[in-house]
Amino acid sequence: MNQLLHVSSSPHIKDKVTTSSIMLDVVIALLPATFFGIYQFKIKALFIILTTIITCVLSEYIYEYFMKKTITIKDLSAVVTGLILALNLPATVPLWIPVIGGIFAIIVVKQLYGGLGQNFMNPALAARCFLLISFAGRMTNFVFDGLTSPTPLVVLKNGQSYELLKMFLGTTSGTIGETSTFALLIGAGYLLIKGIIKLTIPLTYLIIFSIFTLFFSPCSFDFYYLACELCGGGLIFGAFFMATDYVTSPMDRKGQIVYGIILGILTGLFRFFGTSSEGVSYAIIISNLLVPLIDKITLKGGVF
């Protein structure tokens, strides 16, 4: 009874699934949105995607090399961070912006807090928010069909209507990877089929946001408006690809439901009561910060 037991750090469950295989599946799931973004925004989008991914991988390698840490670029987590960040950028940004964003995501948010599994918020989203605060003009400059144009959510916020089919297919202005709901849902379906994510977080998130929209948006109980809000901005992208991040989301189902509720409410507050027409990125990183508290309350042995 007096034996000392050595308990290693998490995770404790042994499985054939590896970090690199999970990350590869995420990359595959993002390919439809990536290819559509390149088709939509041409060669500039491709350059931004490649620049961001290369910056993230090199940042991780250089930091770990000089800090004499194990080199982890083969786990593909830096590739996923770079790809998600790139898909959250407008195709109009100069290439030095994804470089700054990639360095911030990997060095400041990921590596300085211990590397993969230790970061307190999603690195790609943290970098996007950093870039939005630092370079607001460049990060909100959207061009479609050669013309500077507002995103569908800006149009909706100004009290005008927008064609839902265009929003669903993605023939609108926006960031490289967020415009096509159809492409994102194909990728989300792949992740669900492969068992990489579960529906708990995205479904709770989308249901709560829908309820909030029906009651508190400028167009109460307008289901066409609700459909446009669901297809607009980074909501589908965030719900399936970023809010479900293993490291920064709650561990058990009860916590994930609470997390999804908070996400839906915050996104609604930011979209309908804030100055910005979007709100997904800020909603997710704020909710990331609440995850330790959510886990403490909902996990067995917690407060309740």
Rank of each mutant, 00 (worst) to 15 (best):
L164R: 03
A239W: 00
I97G: 00
L112V: 14
W96K: 14
T200Y: 00
P250H: 02
D222L: 01
K74R: 11
Y224K: 07
K42S: 14
I100G: 02
L131H: 04
I13Q: 15
G115S: 11
C231K: 01
F120A: 12
V303Q: 14
I196P: 05
L214P: 01
E229D: 08
S77K: 04
A33M: 09
M251Q: 14
L112I: 15
T55G: 13
F182M: 09
T51D: 14
L85G: 12
P123A: 05
P250S: 08
F120Y: 14
T172L: 02
L87C: 13
L185K: 02
K44Q: 13
A126W: 00
I186Y: 03
F273R: 12
G137L: 10
F66D: 11
I100Y: 00
I53L: 05
Q3K: 15
I286F: 05
I133K: 13
I97K: 04
Y282L: 15
K68Y: 10
F237D: 02
F135C: 08
G255E: 06
V291L: 09
F272L: 09
F216Q: 05
K69Y: 08
G177H: 08
S20Q: 03
F142L: 13
K157D: 05
T140R: 15
D252R: 12
G279T: 08
L132P: 02
I43T: 11
F168Y: 10
L132V: 09
A239V: 06
T248Q: 07
T72A: 07
P94R: 11
Q3M: 13
L50T: 04
L116T: 06
Y282N: 13
F36Y: 10
Y190H: 06
V57D: 06
A283V: 00
L89V: 12
V303D: 12
I286G: 10
Y39C: 04
V303R: 15
I54Y: 07
K44S: 12
G82P: 01
M251G: 13
F216H: 03
H6I: 13
D245I: 00
P90Q: 08
C231Y: 01
K296H: 10
A45V: 05
